[in-house]
Each structure stands twice: as structure tokens, then as C-alpha cells.
Amino acid sequence: MNIHEYQAKEILDRFGVPTPKAEVASTPEEAKEIASRIGGKVVVKAQVHAGGRGKVGGVKLVDSPGEAQEVAEGLIGSRLVTNQTGAAGVPVEKVMVAEILDIKEELYLSIVIDGDLGSPVVMASTEGGVEIEEVAEATPEKIFRVAGDPLIGLTTYHARDIAMALDVPAKSLRATTKLISDLYNVFVENDCSLVEINPLVVTEDDQVIALDAKINLEDDALFRHTDLAGLRDPNQQDPLEQRADQSDLAYVKLEGGRVGCMVNGAGLAMATMDITKAAGADPANFLDIGGSADQKRIEEAFKIIIDDHDVEMILVNLFAGIARSDVVAQGIVAAARETNATVPMVVAMRGTNAEEGIQILADSGLNITGAPDLAGAAEVLKEKLLELGDSN
């Protein structure tokens, strides 16, 4: 689950991580008042779940409270389009007004889960203020990595090693070590999947401050953090993703895809997307219906795919276990009839009640072509794409 920068800042403040003075505003008038309290010269930052704000006017330095009001007036109520959003952009409902710091150096610091190691990994670099992916590609030797122990955590001497790798001033070494330890506590105690500070800045008076913060929370751990679950902003989500959340479906809209995918199991869903790409078309979505989906949930999953106007064909790949093939088939047929769907479908069903499910689909009269397995589905998909015209 993504949260806004101002929300991430509030979490960092609770854990003692130094951040700039800042407040959030929902109206231009509030932005002006906050700028006056902070001291006039401030930065106004659009609060959206997307990076690249600064490149498209979503982050602006201003010299007066009046100018802060003008900038906020232009941002609040608009839609911000960045390289991380779709063409429609995302709505700006709030701005964060923060003090401007005298910056001497920009650094990078983040914590993520390393799947191979099975533990959190702290990544640090002296190349702050730019995308870490660019640093990893151009100068990977400038990224310093330290794994935390799942039981012990991040030891103080490891935090000190990271601070030294960042080459902070000697007088700031102790404060930076504490900041890194506190940030690690933020990650672990809130069940985060990402904590990123970019940039972590050293000011002219050698203070080390988390200037910009990004925190992603692990959805599957939110039951342990009811307070954090309330930070979700559904307005930042794609409308189809909102509907999927309400039905407990794992769904991600993918821009520009033509083939809607309905699968049970995340790993199988990823493989299905790969097969779709190999067949010559981009997948329109990731959709995992889960292992225990009932007919109602199947119907909603199908309707979500149909309501995506980019979808020209649907690929259903089911390896049935708890989620029975006949129940999935009944859900597909019911939803297709309710929505008057005419989109061609390619369906591969194996496992529990597969024969019954295939028969239900065959008797439905819908535009459905069966396939024995995923490889067979790929061949059928290629043929259907040729019938529709040139593939992506």
C-alpha cells in the first residue's frame, strides 16, 4: 500500500528521524498560512502516489506566502501526469508546504526486502537526488548494501558502516548512525516493503535530514496496523483497482495492454502474462482471483476486465484446487451474460472439476476457445490475435 509523502513524514517523525518543518494543506488559503508560520520561503509539493513530480511542475520553490497560495491554487484540484502515471494522471487533493534547507550534499538511503536473502537490506549511495536505477546502471559501485538480520535487526556497527560509506562529516557521524537505525526500526515495526529517502541531505551546518520520504506498506500485514490501514487514499488508485480492492482481488491495471488475464495464483498469473507477451500482445492487467474465490468474486473479476476499454481479448488460465473449475466457469458465464460481453476468450482449465467447467463454457454459447494447457493457450492466442489484426 502506497502512502503520501506527508504521511510518511509523520511516521518518520514518530520514530525520531529528522525531517524538515512541514505541514499539509487542502486549500490554497491553508498553504498560505503554513508558509507564513514556517517563515516565508518554502517548497510546495503536490501529494500524489507517483514519482517524477518535480519534472512536471508538481514541486515548486516559492519566496512568499502569497506565492505559496498561488502555486497551491494551481495544483489542488488538478491532475498530475508524470512518467509513473497513466495518461489520465492522478488527482492532487493536498499539497505539503515545507521549509527550504541550505543543502550541502544530497545522499540516498533506502530499505527493501531482498527475496534471495530473506531479510531487509539497507542501500545507501553518495549519489542522491537522482533515480537509484540510474545509479545502479551507470555506477553500481557507488551503491553500498548491508543486510539486516531478521532476528537481531541492524546492529549499531552496521549502521555506522553505512554512515561512513555515505562519507558524512565527522561531526555528523553519530547522528547519521542513529538516523539509519531509526529508519530501520520504521521499516520493521511498520511491516514496510519499502522505505526510501531520496535525497537524504547534509545541510550547510552539517545536519543530516530526510528531505523526501517514500514508504510502501505490506498489504498482507495491515491487519496488524489498523492505524496505518486508514492512511490508504483510494482516490490515487485506478477506478478498476479500487473495485478489485473492495472484492479482495489482486489486480493491477497495465497501460496499453490488449489481453485481459484472469488467473488463480500470483506465480501462474506472472507466467500467463509472460505467455501473453510471447504470443505477440501486451497483457492488460495482472489479476489473481485467489485460491478460494466464490462465484460472486469471479463475476466481479470478469466485470473488471470487461470494463477495461483496452481489452480486446481475455485469457483465462486456471489450475483449480480449492477454487473449482465449475464455479469459475459459472462466474464467467453469469458475468458475460450480465454485461453482454462479446470479447473473444481463450480458456485453459485443469484441476478440480475441470471437465465440468469446460462443459459449462462450451454450452454457454459465448465466444470461447478452449486450450489444454498454457502452452496450448499461447498457440490459440496467437491465432486469435491474427484474426483481430496486427499484434502490439
Rank of each mutant, 00 (worst) to 15 (best):
T342G: 12
M313K: 05
I304V: 09
N340A: 11
Q330N: 15
R324C: 04
G267N: 04
N353R: 11
V347D: 10
G331Q: 08
M349D: 03
N235F: 09
V346Q: 07
I298C: 15
P283F: 03
G321F: 06
E338F: 09
Q330D: 12
A348R: 15
C261G: 01
K303R: 15
F319N: 03
M345K: 13
I289V: 15
I305V: 13
S292L: 11
D274W: 07
A336S: 15
L268K: 05
F319D: 07
T272H: 04
D282K: 14
I304C: 01
K277T: 13
A229E: 14
Y251W: 03
G290E: 05
A301Q: 10
D307R: 13
T276W: 05
E300W: 06
V327A: 11
R258E: 09
T276D: 08
A293F: 10
D248G: 06
A279C: 07
A278I: 14
G280L: 07
I322M: 13
I332K: 04
K253T: 01
Q295R: 14
R258G: 05
I322L: 14
D294A: 09
N317E: 10
I305E: 08
G280K: 11
S247C: 10
A293W: 06
A278N: 14
V263T: 03
G230M: 14
V328P: 01
G257H: 00
T352L: 02
G280F: 03
M349T: 00
A341N: 13
F286T: 00
M262C: 02
P234C: 10
L249H: 00
N353Q: 12
I305F: 02
P239I: 11
G267R: 07
E300T: 14
S292N: 15
T342A: 15
R258Q: 11
E299L: 03
L315Y: 03
P239W: 12
R258D: 06
A341K: 02
Q330F: 05
L240V: 03
N340M: 10
A329G: 09
A323V: 11
G267P: 01
A323K: 01
A278T: 12
Q237E: 15
D308V: 12
M262H: 01
N235A: 15
A329M: 08
N340K: 14
G290R: 01
S247V: 02
M313D: 06
D294E: 13
G321D: 08
E312M: 06
S247T: 03
L228F: 04
K296P: 02
I289L: 13
G230F: 07
A244L: 05
D326C: 05
V263Y: 01
G290Q: 04
P283Y: 02
I298K: 02
V333P: 01
Q246D: 14
E300P: 04
